[in-house]
């Protein structure tokens, strides 16, 4: 094909549509588009072509081979239009409508979060590793008598976290004195133990989980399901990446500076299963000490023993148990 003629407007329009224009170029294009009907028509030519290429690509027109096209379809993320599906439910046309619209319309960020929450709500065993991304230069509060020698939030790097359903978790931390500390809950009661010392047990299933970051209703990372529910209310949810075949990513930004909780939360989840694979919490509230930012990464979904979340699983039968009122 011959080299096509083009104008400065074409250059700018292409850059804007490919998302590589700088602010000056965007402003210049806006000025040109406002200036004349011819410029608007030409810009729309570019924009409509771009839109048509997006749709053609989704139809597989550019796939190098039919095999790859069908592989892409098989690997494509489930596309949900929850509200639309709800609206059209009662009709006999449901199957046709759902198929067509679900296929044609990709998923919104909030709908993706709903899916992650649904999966998180199921009683499925998961093992996570906690990594401190950004620690304070000088951990504070470590001498506060009401928080003990080793505040939970100050020793999270390398900790392991096991989860099943709501209020079922175990957190394992290595302390500087060589002891291991375990904090957990089995859905009915929560418990804590350190080294070979006695086991403290509370009838409140959230009692020991609250020790970590939760204060005045702030979000506690241990109860991920509740936290994700809160995200919808307190945070602006947007897509960060939904093209990768490995992980899809959402980013949640706190709506108000007055509200507690991490300022920004990144959620990585499996495109097909919706299983949360990684959660990055940035700029955590530091009222209880602890790190600025942490990452929680999925290590395994292997099934755990049935009684894993009960304290008895983690100590000898003759260990002293101190019930709390």
């Amino acid at each position: 094909m011959n080299s096509p003629q083009h104008s400065p407007l074409d250059d700018l329009a292409t850059k804007v549509l490919l998302d590589i224009a700088d602010d000056a170029e965007r402003e210049e294009l806006a000025r040109l588009v406002a200036a004349s009907p011819e410029s608007r028509r030409r810009f729309l030519d570019n924009a409509m072509l771009h839109g048509m290429l997006v749709r053609e690509a989704r139809a597989g027109s550019f796939a190098p081979s039919k095999g790859e096209f069908f592989r892409n379809l098989e690997n494509a993320p489930a596309r949900g239009a929850r509200r639309l599906r709800h609206l059209l439910l009662p009709a006999a046309a449901l199957v046709i409508i759902s198929f067509l619209l679900l296929f044609l319309l990709p998923m919104k960020a909030n709908a993706a979060l709903d899916r992650v929450i649904d999966v998180m709500s199921q009683a499925r065993d998961r093992t996570y590793r906690i990594e401190v991304i950004e620690a304070p230069q000088e951990p504070r509060d470590s001498s506060r008598p009401d928080r003990g020698r080793f505040p939970v939030g100050n020793f999270l790097d390398g900790a392991a976290l096991w989860m099943r359903g709501p209020h079922e978790f175990v957190l394992s931390q290595d302390l500087p004195n060589g002891q291991k500390r375990l904090i957990g809950a089995d859905g009915k009661e929560s418990w804590s133990m350190r080294g070979g010392e006695e086991v403290r047990v509370s009838p409140d299933p959230a009692r020991f989980g609250r020790a970590i970051f939760a204060k005045n209703g702030e979000i506690a990372f241990l109860d991920l399901r509740t936290q994700l529910e809160e995200l919808k209310r307190l945070y602006q949810i947007e897509w960060l990446d939904r093209t990768s075949s490995a992980s899809h990513k959402l980013i949640a930004t706190r709506r108000s500076a007055d509200q507690g909780g991490a300022r920004e939360i990144e959620l990585w989840f499996h495109p097909q299963t919706g299983v949360l694979e990684k959660m990055i919490l940035r700029q955590l509230p530091r009222g209880n000490g602890g790190p600025h930012s942490i990452a929680i990464t999925l290590v395994s979904t292997e099934a755990l023993p049935a009684d894993f979340f009960r304290h008895q699983h983690h100590h000898e039968p003759d260990r002293t148990v101190l019930p709390e009122p």
Binding site: M1, N2, S3, P4, Q5, H6, D10, D11, T14, K15, L18, I20, D45, N46, L49, H50
Partner: peptide, 17 residues
């Protein structure tokens, strides 16, 4: 890469017109 994409776009625009 930008120039290549731009060339493809303009080629297609000319062809369609």
């Amino acid at each position: 890469v930008y120039k290549m994409l731009k060339h493809v776009h303009l080629t297609l625009l000319d062809c369609i017109s």
